[in-house]
């Protein structure tokens, strides 16, 4: 079972619809125990990192996310679900995030239209997540902040908006995307399907809980 964490994120219903469309065996969960029992975990997100961190802590989800990531459970973060993986965020005052990947969440420069809203092309690393997706394919972004990281090996796909920023990251069992695959048409659905397939394969290879 793939647990989709419900902490009130605005894009949860559409993330669920897209995962259902690619026939992912999902369950929407609010209980950290259900996350701990899942074969894979999806953390959707829209909005601010500070609010999201507060919600996750109040639910005890921060500890559950750390635990499943530490034990190798496939994990997919979407938009703010990616940003909270960073060490810290500068949104509404510097604050700590989950610290599961190196980097800081920073605001796009003045002079750009912020938020970035629309379809932007992603140069990707050709890994299995991107199977069947052309390099440079466009995905739908809505965000004012991005992950600034000095670890290039983390980046699985990158995009230009005033600067070059990570559109997708991958490390061990962690996958996360800044864009909204649930709103990125055919390529978004393909990416979700690829991740689900990879998660199932990984799940079969790991011990049962």
């Amino acid at each position: 079972m793939i647990a989709v964490i419900n902490y009130g994120a605005g894009n949860l219903p559409n993330a669920v619809r897209a995962l259902e469309y690619v026939q992912a065996p999902i369950e929407v969960v609010t209980d950290p125990a259900a996350v701990l029992a899942a074969d894979a975990v999806v953390l959707p997100g829209v909005g601010a990192t500070a609010d999201t961190m507060r919600s996750l802590r109040e639910m005890g989800m921060d500890a559950a996310i750390r635990a499943v990531i530490a034990r190798g459970t496939p994990f997919l973060g979407i938009c703010v679900g990616m940003q909270v993986l960073a060490e810290q965020s500068e949104e509404f005052g510097l604050h700590e995030c989950l610290g599961l990947v190196p980097g800081t969440i920073r605001r796009f420069d003045q002079g750009l239209k912020v938020p970035q809203i629309g379809w932007n092309s992603v140069q990707h690393d050709g890994s299995a997540l991107w199977d069947g997706i052309p390099n440079g394919a466009e995905f739908y972004f809505v965000h004012s902040y991005y992950l600034a990281t000095n670890d290039p090996t983390l980046v699985a796909g990158h995009t230009e908006y005033g600067l070059n920023f990570p559109a997708a990251i991958a490390r061990d069992n962690i996958t996360a995307v800044q864009f909204h695959p649930e709103k990125s048409g055919q390529w978004g659905l393909k990416l979700l399907g690829n991740w689900v397939q990879g998660a199932v394969v990984r799940g079969q290879g790991s011990a049962q809980h």
Binding site: G118, W119, N120
Partner: peptide, 8 residues
Amino acid sequence: MLTRRIIP
């Protein structure tokens, strides 16, 4: 590059 959008 961010593309311009066509919205029916």
